[in-house]
Design a protein around this nucleic acid. Structure first.
Length: 355
DNA sequence: AATGGTTACAACCGCTCGTTG
DNA sequence: ACAACGAGCGGTTGTAACCAT
């Protein structure tokens, strides 16, 4: 037996709202509130609309102080930062941007911001290709003959340029982020502390779960964290929103922090959105300009570890960036569970390319 | 002016989660 | 413990507006 429909589909109007309908809904809610029951609302007002439709119309359009369009650079940065941290959790992102709705941000991301970001990335990639091609032409055959020394010569912290869709080394033998001390430092810098005591081990015997807790955070590291948040965020406004918001999800997220957050560094896992994975995995340099998201240290670590997701203790940008926003990172397990099939497919593709 | 393609946005759909009886 | 229900969320679709030819 299926679930009963929330309204009589045959008798509800669909499509764009008329000004009259808007006026009815707005004036009723302003005078009486929603009454906590959206399903009953349209009947009370005499609207031939589904309750869900009314709710959506109110939240996305009629509610006071709603801003439409005209996203600022700062808002762009916040959206990008949060998207990279938590993915498409539009309601959480919207909670950090007063006056913006999740629907609005979602649309803005899908239609403009994503393209803007990818366009910028591709442009930079082309520019780099162009300049490296010029260099290669200058050096002539040197490169080929010197191939064996390339690794040593490559002194910059960046990954060597990888051709798009080139097979990515995928070896269990060489996890690139095996240094627990470095990782611990990073976490401490971010204000958390992980404990290896009593950590569960994987079936293959490699302990790879890191307990990220805040209940032991010293005031110093807490301050460090707060400072790092301030430094890394485009402005303090989102922080204010974070502190002051009545958003339930954030409250929940904060409460989870007290109990400790487990970051399972599972093989090949990344919570990175597919379109950004392209940037990250094909060309970590492409993240230049997004340092505001995580700071230079983390950018460096990303370059070191971004293509290694198979190592038992390795950490990819997805995981790293999920630490940027600890209140959000506390939802990490949930986010990981919600990894899309698309992302899994991406990982599989990478794996198959490498083998 | 007509047509076809693209973009931006509003709205819908279906799912999950929390609450209630 | 369970089912029914409403609220909320994210993905998708429909369509008006705009632009190029």
């Amino acid at each position: 037996m299926g679930r009963a429909p929330c309204c009589d589909k045959a008798n509800v109007k669909k499509g764009p709202w008329s000004p009259e309908e808007d006026a009815k809904l707005k004036s009723y809610i302003e005078q009486n509130g929603t009454g906590g029951n959206w399903i009953a609302l349209p009947q009370k007002i005499g609207l031939k609309r589904c309750g869900k439709s009314c709710r959506l119309r109110w939240l996305n359009y009629l509610r006071p102080n709603i801003k439409h369009g005209g996203f600022s650079e700062e808002e762009d940065n916040i959206i990008c930062s949060l998207y990279i941290s938590i993915g498409s959790r539009w309601s959480i992102i919207a909670a950090q941007l007063p006056g913006r709705t999740d629907n609005d941000i979602k649309n803005y991301w899908n239609t403009r911001l994503k393209k803007k970001l990818l366009g910028k990335h591709r442009k930079e990639q082309q520019a780099r290709r162009g300049s490296s091609l010029k260099q290669e032409m200058k050096r002539g055959g040197e490169i080929v003959s010197d191939n064996n020394n390339n690794q040593n010569q490559n002194q910059n912290p960046y990954w060597p340029e990888l051709p798009v869709l080139a097979p990515i080394p995928y070896s269990n033998q060489e996890p690139r982020f095996t240094d627990h001390v470095s990782f611990r430092k990073l976490l401490i810098k971010l204000g958390g502390r992980f404990s290896e005591v009593g950590l569960p081990t994987h079936h293959d015997g490699t302990g790879s779960s890191l307990q990220f807790t805040t209940d032991h955070i010293s005031s110093t590291s807490q301050q460090t964290y707060e400072q790092s948040m301030i430094n890394n965020m485009p402005s303090s406004a989102p922080l204010d929103a974070l502190n002051n918001t009545g958003n339930i999800q954030f409250a929940q997220a904060q409460s989870y922090m007290g109990g400790g957050v487990e970051l399972n560094m599972l093989q090949g896992q990344s919570c990175f959105p597919a379109e950004l994975e392209e940037i990250v995995y094909n060309n970590p340099q492409g993240l230049d300009g997004l340092e505001f998201l995580c700071g230079e240290d983390m950018m460096y670590n990303n370059r070191i570890g971004s293509t290694s997701t198979c190592g038992d203790q390795s950490i990819g940008l997805g995981e790293m960036s999920s630490l940027i926003y600890p209140p959000i990172a506390s939802n990490y397990e949930g986010i990981m569970q919600q990894r899309t099939q698309r992302e899994c497919a991406f990982e599989e593709l990478r794996y198959s390319q490498a083998n």
